[in-house]
Amino acid sequence: MERHDGWFRALRAMALTLVLLFFLFPIFWILLMSFQNNEQILRLPPSLVFRPSLGNYIALISGKLQTSAGVLDITFLHNLWNSVLLSTCSVALSLLLGVPAAYAFARFRFRLGEDIAFTLLSFRFAPPLLVLLPLSLYFQDLGLSNTYFGLIWVYQLICLPLILWIVRGYFEDASPDVEYAYRIDGHSWWRAFTRIAIPLAGPGIAAAALLSFIFAWNNFVFALILASADKQPVTVGALAFVTASGIQYGQIAAAIVLSILPTLALALYAQRWLVEGLSLGAVKG
């Protein structure tokens, strides 16, 4: 289907090199910056050869930032912890809510079933601020603003549709006869669900959980609106940090690296399921 002559190969190799350069260079460059001090960063022309130091990371982890104006306390590590907490709890709650619902939508034809499923899907595409702005007023009345609980609840907007629709696909792919057989053996509905249906949909559930973790981690706008500094995840925290740290570019780069490292690592681990997750279960990789 393609001509494999020399010209073609050379063109293809060149195109791929450019593509890789464009998409990977920023990550590579920021990684380099995170090991440099301000002096090295500000030197022009930039140099690939420098003496790397862990100073930026040490400053971030110790929480003490040396600036010309004195020692500045930084809470970046706390933001990182918030990200872990928010993403993990949101995914856990989403699994708790979404897996049974996905099973119901896959196994039963019932009134309102498809309506609920599509309403949840539509959350994925509605403008988040439409809900968030009134919600910020409600949260103040309910005492939920700037609470982990409130944030985790709103994070369901990201995690729930994803988990629901991916896991539903996996339940649909499994033959119901296997569950029926288990029930006829004498096991209750609940045991058939937990011992048969869930293990058989296991890979799908794991994939959906990993992906919704990534999306929850990467979310920015929810916490920007509903959380103050002490509850903010890294996405919002990094932005605040840029303002606070002024010209400590190395530390900014190090903060960026720490912020994106978990999702990149998870993505590499879960790459087999990424296509399915990104398309909400419509395309299998």
């Binding site: 990550i27 990467n218 570019y249 900014i252 994106i260 993505a267």
Partner: peptide, 25 residues
């Protein structure tokens, strides 16, 4: 490898490009 940018939080991606397009360095 090309998926890595997609897995970067868009807000953080902006910061990365902000650093790379800084007029000073």
């Amino acid at each position: 490898a090309l998926l890595l940018p997609l897995m970067t939080a868009p807000a953080i991606a902006s910061l990365m490009w902000k650093l790379m397009t800084n007029p000073n360095f």
